[in-house]
């Protein structure tokens, strides 16, 4: 079995890591790049497959050469057998469609065709949620999205998964398909291991990957557009239908209010009573 996990380096949006300039714009240069948090669920799902069914996990990302550290972070913090970085100036500033074509081409270019390609849901920067489904459209494989748990049947080569459907109320679906397939994990993905033998194996694999991650560069392959035989007109900004025409700071939430202070007596609280009395029942 071969599992490929798609990931992206994103600015670290955790509190305290983000800086803004005077106009309220995000200062990207000062913000460290980390592995997209949602992609960890995808990588954990791939590790879960490896623990239960064996195989190799390739962690793949697209970005500037410095993104190798993001892949190394994934290898150290979760798991990877090898790393693949798609890096080329021609790939820069791609929107989701140009990105998806590049990723799909790389997947097709692999000697060992993956059985399952995993992706996380939405990146912390672009937040489109499009790249998994669009990469899948190029591959023309079955697609399972918003997956919260999955099981693989080795005999039939089939995947059974539960996925979340938004509605009123939300629903949970059980879906089945065959490999190769693309699985987009939901942030609620269940990464628990019920069997003790699985937990032991996971522990061993985690130790191995941490050791490997010390010298992650040794496990890294880098491909550019020539390796992928990609026409530069169809990747990066050149191949992107969309552009960002403007960025505005989000006006501060209407939170900074001026309270009217009052003592809890009849007269002073009259205004409050007027506000709430209308909502009384019966």
């Amino acid at each position: 079995m071969h599992y490929v996990v798609m990931t992206k380096g994103v600015p670290d949006f955790r509190e305290g890591q983000v800086e803004f300039d005077e106009d309220g714009h995000l200062k990207r240069g000062n913000t460290p790049t980390v592995m997209n948090p949602n992609d960890r669920f995808a990588l954990r799902a791939a590790l879960q497959m490896k623990v239960k069914h064996g195989g190799n996990v390739t962690l793949m990302g697209m970005g500037p050469p410095g993104y190798d550290k993001v892949l190394g972070e994934g290898m150290r913090d979760v798991y990877a057998d090898d790393l693949l970085l798609l890096s080329d100036r021609e790939f820069a500033a791609a929107d989701t469609w140009a990105t998806s074509m590049t990723l799909a081409t790389a997947i097709k270019e692999m000697d060992d065709t993956p059985d399952v390609v995993f992706a996380g849901f939405k990146t912390a920067d672009g937040e489109t949620g499009h790249t998994g489904p669009q990469t899948n459209w190029c591959l023309e494989w079955p697609l399972l999205t918003h997956v919260v748990s999955m099981a693989y049947d080795e005999d039939g080569g089939s995947i059974r998964a539960k996925r979340l459907v938004e509605g009123d109320p939300d629903e949970i679906e059980t879906v089945e398909t065959t490999t190769p397939a693309v699985v987009v994990t939901d942030p609620e993905f269940d990464t628990s291991y019920r069997k003790a033998s699985y937990r032991l194996k996971r522990k061993r694999l985690r130790e191995e990957t941490q050791e490997r991650a010390e010298e992650f560069e040794d496990h890294m392959t880098t491909w550019d557009h020539q390796d992928l035989n990609l026409d530069p007109e169809y990747v990066g900004l050149d191949g992107s239908p969309t552009i960002v025409s403007g960025v505005d700071p989000i006006p501060k939430a209407p939170s900074e209010r001026e309270p009217t202070f009052m003592e809890p007596d009849e007269e002073e609280m009259e205004q409050v009573v007027e506000e709430i009395a209308a909502y009384g029942g019966g």
Partner: peptide, 17 residues
């Protein structure tokens, strides 16, 4: 659309090449 984890609004256009 709200972008960058809700820190900014981006205006996106889909334009012919």
């Amino acid at each position: 659309r709200p972008d960058f984890s809700g820190y900014e609004y981006s205006t996106i256009l889909c334009l012919d090449n």
